[in-house]
């Protein structure tokens, strides 16, 4: 495995209590694989990604436990300089908001060549050439000229392409994309994801793709993690998880996709609120919103295999007490 994350816990300590943003997450990522991460807002997806690259502000954040093995080093325990050598070179990250992720005072060229100069030690002309090629590859027309423009001269979609080019220009082994297309309109989103897919295949880059869009996951990812309240409640191949969801939360998420509703039906929403992460939850975090919850759901749960490629944290499903309706594999 390329990346092996084991029991990652990231807490935020504040005067008002401890926020358990990521609470015992384990997963692995193979070379070239695309892993989707879904879950409601605030369930700790971003914090999980940032933890891997040591980008959690400390304080208030703290990595309480865990290991993230990546090519012989533990990302969570290695020195700052080891981490810097990984960031932006072997593992790159693309942030959600393309409008604010580029430095407004520096030309795009300056920013895209930066990782090449810094990590690869290329000369300026060689770096510029590669940067132009990268911009070209993400679909920026007339890249050789436009690379010298300033960020404000680019639209949101173009800026996000720039960010992606910047992330891929060093040919990283892993690309972490935290909702890379959420701020963009649907057509641009599809174009960009398509480009990323193509480049990923060319470079053999693995990707962790955080998104709210289950359709995107179905279309782009190999495997999927479903997160709830800082924990993974279900994981497996896209086909398994979407075909036969094995956790009531996943089933509910699927049911709430508007496109799968008959016209006129009221939109399905999951009742109740996600739990307050400051409260210690002993059992299943979803129990209070779950229609299948029984007393035994208050006991500690853990992610266990249902089949070799399908894991769930639902005790009742594991015991075979309940069956969940599958929506069939959604495809785009």
């Amino acid at each position: 495995m390329l990346l092996d994350v084991d029991n990652l816990r990231t807490y935020f300590h504040s005067r008002h209590g401890t926020v358990r943003a990521v609470d015992g997450v384990s997963f692995s990522l193979g070379a070239g694989e695309t892993l989707g991460v879904v879950g409601e807002s605030g369930c700790g997806k971003s914090v999980m990604c940032m933890s891997l690259l040591g980008l959690i502000p400390q304080p208030p954040g703290r990595i309480e436990s865990g290991r993230a093995r990546f090519g012989g080093v533990d990302l969570l325990a290695c020195s700052a300089s080891e981490l810097r050598a990984v960031r932006g070179c072997r593992i790159s990250m693309v942030f959600q908001d393309p409008m604010t992720s580029l430095n407004p005072y520096l030309r795009v060229s300056t920013q895209v060549v930066e990782p090449l100069l810094y990590h690869k030690g290329l000369s300026q002309p060689a770096a510029l050439e590669q940067a132009i090629a990268a911009l070209d590859a993400v679909g920026i027309p007339d890249a050789a000229r436009r690379i010298h423009a300033y960020p404000y001269e680019f639209s949101g979609g173009m800026r996000q392409r720039v960010m992606i080019a910047m992330a891929l220009v060093t040919r990283p082994e892993i690309l972490i994309a935290d909702e890379p297309t959420t701020a963009l309109d649907v057509t641009v989103q599809a174009q960009i994801l398509e480009r990323v897919r193509t480049m990923q295949r060319e470079l053999g880059t693995a990707m962790i793709l955080v998104t709210h869009d289950l359709g995107v996951v179905a279309g782009v990812c190999d495997r999927i993690l479903v997160m709830y309240a800082g924990r993974i409640v279900e994981s497996g191949t896209v086909r398994a998880v979407f075909g036969t969801p094995a956790h009531p939360y996943t089933a509910a998420l699927q049911k709430s996709i508007p496109a799968l509703h008959r016209k006129g039906d009221p939109l399905y929403t999951i009742g109740g609120q996600p739990p307050d992460l400051r409260r210690e939850i002993a059992g299943c975090a979803f129990a209070e919103r779950c229609e299948f919850a029984v007393e035994c759901c208050q006991r500690p749960v853990e992610l266990r295999p249902l089949t070799a490629e399908h894991w769930t944290a639902c005790t009742r499903r594991l015991a075979g007490d309940i069956t969940l309706p599958g929506a069939g594999t959604t495809s785009r």
Partner: peptide, 16 residues
């Protein structure tokens, strides 16, 4: 600002 965070994520050192 996010571009500073992005610069950190690029692995650049603090002085730079």
């Amino acid at each position: 600002q996010e571009y500073v965070e992005a610069a950190v994520a690029l692995g650049l050192g603090t002085p730079r």
